[in-house]
Simulated assay, not measured.
Amino acid sequence: MSRTQRNAGIAAFFLEHVAEVIDMIDLVHGGARTVQNIRAQLLGLRSESAVDRELPEGLGVRADTAERLIRDDFSVFHSNCILGAWGALEATVDDFCVSQLKDSAVRDQLPALQALKVPLGEFLGRSEEERWDWVLEHLKVSRSSVLKPGVGQFESILGDVNLGGKVDDDLRKLLFEVKALRNAIAHRGGKVDQRLIDALPGWGMAIGDRIHVGYEQVVAALLGMSVYVDLVVHRSRGTEWQPGGSSAPSPQRLLSTFERPEAISQPRP
């Protein structure tokens, strides 16, 4: 399999994953509302205690859970979807990089790789499959890539493996904001902190606010990640990428959806 084919397969896997996550979000929304409607219809015919007794085993608990999810606008669920998808994006970019490193024609022309200093014994002691993952980790450490904001985390290392290039301004801004939100969810328990306020000063948040991620917002974040992967695979093919050129909405539209302040946070209870 050629490098271009490998990279296309890597992209296809991620895009399919995102599509499945969006389908799962729709399923959870629909399922919760169905359970809520069943309970509401039964309550119209019987007392609440009778309904709770007559609901199939476990459905009463699920009905309570459905009510909580709906009241919360599924925010915790959406937040976890963003966490998982960003992790999948990180793994996808790693796979692109390893695919490049496995190609000797690319590898022999990478200044960053030639300048990288690693213990030769450790390199040779690893299997062929493990070597390039190991080299990539050393490249990432040398670039402090994980500490960079937004797509800077990825561009700093993609450039080292001949997959760097221009990023649409709206897409760059969107993924900067998505990563900032992801970090607050992951490291601050889903509450707004000063770092998030500094990263997103126009959102009108206060320290301690509970981060709220709505449906349109999580979908915009997921599609933004997909658009970025599509951009990288275009670089791999050597073909021109145009904003909004695929079936996904344009980065500008995704950014405007993601940035609506009313969808971002709720005051701390």
Results as ranks from 00 to 15, higher is better:
F96Q: 07
P251T: 09
R3F: 13
D26T: 09
K191A: 10
N183A: 06
T65I: 04
R188E: 12
W132Y: 14
L42S: 03
M225C: 10
L223T: 15
V35K: 04
G245D: 07
V229M: 00
G204W: 05
P251Q: 06
G224R: 03
E155D: 13
V18M: 01
V161R: 03
L27H: 13
D103K: 03
P243F: 05
V218E: 03
G244V: 08
E122D: 15
V233N: 09
V61C: 04
E262M: 08
T92A: 04
A12M: 01
I197T: 11
G238H: 05
Q114S: 12
R182D: 11
R195W: 02
D108T: 08
A40K: 15
L89Q: 06
E137Y: 07
D64W: 02
E259Y: 01
V18Y: 00
A40I: 09
G189I: 02
L171W: 04
E54C: 12
T239E: 13
L15N: 15
R260Q: 10
S246R: 01
K179L: 04
F154S: 06
V227E: 10
L139Q: 08
E54G: 15
Q266A: 13
R68P: 00
S2H: 04
H212K: 07
Q266D: 09
D26E: 14
R46T: 02
H29W: 00
R268C: 07
D95K: 14
T257R: 06
R235C: 01
E216G: 15
I185H: 01
F13A: 14
I207T: 15
L136A: 06
